[in-house]
Nucleic acid binder design. Structure first.
Lengths: 239, 239
DNA sequence: CGGCATCCGTGACGATACTG
DNA sequence: CAGTATCGTCACGGATGCCG
């Protein structure tokens, strides 16, 4: 739902905007694509969102079947929010938005916040065609992504029937999950043994994300250190 | 601009939402993807938008390089709004949103407005792989689309450098334009001789749009009348 | 502490009326 | 026809407070 008011148009794009057209909603989805997050983590990685708006969005998203709220296992009892399958199906939307926005990214403004995992979606594009668990180390932090784990395009409408509550929970992000389920990227180091570890500085990562610099060229120029023994690491070093 | 306030995040998706995250903006783009439109036409096909908000959005979009305002040729002096190349590059975003929203379209509610050309984007998906100028006739009206005229996915960042004003104007929608330029669909009958004409009722069009019914199956079941002599029409009849 | 609810000032939105 | 002007309402952003 946008603001509580619907567009009232019999059009699938308008219906989508009824659900995710509200301010902050798609950015919350971007955060949750990295896996289950606590309220405070979300609030920290979404600078500018007020506490009540965040709580309100999370409630609306749960009502619309985009997220579920789960109590963490025994130790460290806390709530985490995670995407349902329907919510995770928004990945292509964020990818399309990100691809379009790259042309206008420009230089980093002094007021711009940055989080390491915000580079995950663009890097996933740069790694299109590759497969494997990749850990990325930036000055801002570490994140990981599972290249080839999800179709980059065309998730399509072949998923859940509607926004009914009670959708199946989004599978956990444990290492070793099969392709297609679980988050395609996540905050922090990779859970298991990564197939490749990329170390690079922010400028290089930005250039790759914007498409100004090919990942292989960056490796060749020594602007990306590639470690790891997986076939993906070998391919990146050789290319 | 979203609301005039930016998210202030160095993230391409957030930057995209700075430009098109405002209420109504993406639906205005949906309308303009059908080709140049006048203010009053936009207002008529966007039920619920107030006049000042529409004017404000059009101003913002022009400032951000998404649209241009042009004075129509000599006779019938009026202004038309049309997308720039950068604005037209939002097609994949609307397609991703539409694909995601199809699962939640459901039945038409009594309060839902409908316009014939809102079926253009879903039908473009149903015609993926085909090429040709198609005219679609519904009870609600007639529209046309150019299948195969634009890449359905991956327009990517390889377009204009930024939202600087003064971008090249969007090419006219004259018939016979090469692939890639000009609107991929439009209101009213096709400008030139269509390669195929599809006549169908709203329920059938809805089922096809939602992916519940394959276009070829609908033709086979007699729910879509296909006329025309183009190879596309022949393929649809034979399939 | 994490997870909100409440209050408040500003501004965006929606409807109507009005003007060039 | 193409907007601008006005106005009430509601959403947003920021700060604070409550409660487990």
């Amino acid at each position: 739902m946008p603001p509580r008011r619907s567009y009232d148009q019999y059009c699938s794009a308008a219906r989508a905007l009824d659900s995710v057209g509200d301010r902050w909603t798609l950015l919350i989805v971007r955060e949750l694509l990295a896996g289950p997050r606590r309220y405070t983590d979300l609030h920290a990685d979404l600078p500018g969102v007020s506490t009540d708006v965040l709580a309100s969005r999370l409630r609306d998203m749960e009502r619309d079947g985009l997220t579920t709220r789960r109590r963490l296992p025994p130790p460290g009892a806390a709530h985490v929010y995670e995407l349902t399958e329907r919510g995770g199906a928004l990945l292509p939307v964020l990818q399309a938005l990100g691809a379009w926005g790259e042309a206008a990214l420009g230089e980093r403004r002094p007021t711009d916040a940055v989080r390491a995992h915000w580079f995950a979606l663009p890097l996933l594009r740069a790694l299109e065609g590759e497969t494997g668990l990749v850990e990325v180390r930036l000055d801002e932090g570490v994140f990981h992504l599972r290249a080839g784990a999800a179709p980059l395009h065309g998730v399509g409408p072949a998923d859940v029937g509607g926004p009914a509550p009670g959708d199946g929970p989004y599978p956990g992000n444990g290492p070793g999950s099969g392709p297609g389920d679980g988050p395609v990227y996540g905050d922090g180091p990779a859970g298991g043994e990564p197939d490749a570890v990329l170390s690079l500085d922010t400028d290089t990562c930005t250039a790759i994300s914007r498409g100004d610099l090919a990942l292989t060229d960056a490796v060749r120029a020594g602007r990306v250190r590639v470690t790891g023994d997986g076939p993906l690491a070998k391919r990146l070093r050789e290319a």
